[in-house]
């Protein structure tokens, strides 16, 4: 699925150069559940952004299947994100003025799906995360766990190949965390999704098939 070869990412921050990723090489096979851990500022989120086609490496090559993401123009990267990659964020990132149903629909808006079909798929996605009865509530009327379920439904409605989750349980209590992880594991298992989770939480990381550790921009495998 993913192939990274000597990926480096540097940022200029005022006078300083930040080396977020240093010569990272790895591959992630299709259908694998990978957890990425590491200290804050270690490069976890940067790596996730590279995998999510949100940013390009400063040097090196990153490929999703046959598509080389490192040299792709913005419009094509946007298309890849719209069709193949689902995102789940720590802060849920729902649009506050839209209902749960409408938030889920935003994910298939770029695909040019007809309105009726869009509504049907969004309703199904919400039902699959157990929120069929909350479709017409705005985010402020939902709990943190429910909001994250809406975010997961939004990520899944386009039926992506990859689901990238950045601290998906970071804002949730333990019980809700476990519910969300159960949901993600189930989707990974049932749909054969490639699932990459960035987390500080070892309890979450332990549920992954593979654990990577990122410190100072360098990746190491953990048993």
């Amino acid at each position: 699925m993913y192939t990274l070869e000597n990926v480096t990412k540097t940022y200029r921050q005022k006078e300083r150069t930040i080396h977020a990723l240093k010569d990272v090489s790895l591959s992630i096979p299709t259908g694998q559940l990978v957890a990425i851990q590491g200290p804050t500022g270690g490069g976890k989120s940067t790596l996730l952004q590279m995998l999510g086609a949100l940013d390009r490496p400063t040097s090196g090559r990153i490929a999703l299947g046959e598509a080389d993401l490192s040299g792709m123009p913005d419009t094509k990267l946007g298309r890849i994100r719209a069709t193949e990659i689902g995102f789940v964020f720590q802060g849920f990132n729902l649009i506050p003025t839209l209902t749960a149903q409408e938030n889920v629909e935003t994910a298939i808006e770029p695909l040019g799906v007809a309105a009726d079909e869009r509504r049907r798929r969004a309703t199904e996605a919400l039902a699959s995360v157990g929120l069929g009865d909350r479709a017409h509530h705005v985010p402020s009327e939902l709990s943190g766990g429910q909001q994250q379920r809406v975010a997961i439904a939004r990520a899944l409605v386009k039926e992506p190949d990859v689901l990238l989750a950045d601290e998906p349980t970071g804002n949730l209590d333990e019980q809700t965390r476990d519910e969300i992880m159960d949901l993600l594991e189930g989707l990974h298992r049932d749909r054969g999704l490639t699932l990459v989770i960035v987390t500080h939480d070892s309890a979450v990381a332990r549920r992954a098939e593979r654990r990577l550790h990122l410190t100072h921009g360098t990746v190491t495998e953990r048993a």
Partner: peptide, 12 residues
């Protein structure tokens, strides 16, 4: 964040 999210999910 809203627009960043929309771009992340593929909005042009």
């Amino acid at each position: 964040r809203e627009f960043g999210t929309l771009k992340a999910i593929g909005w042009s």
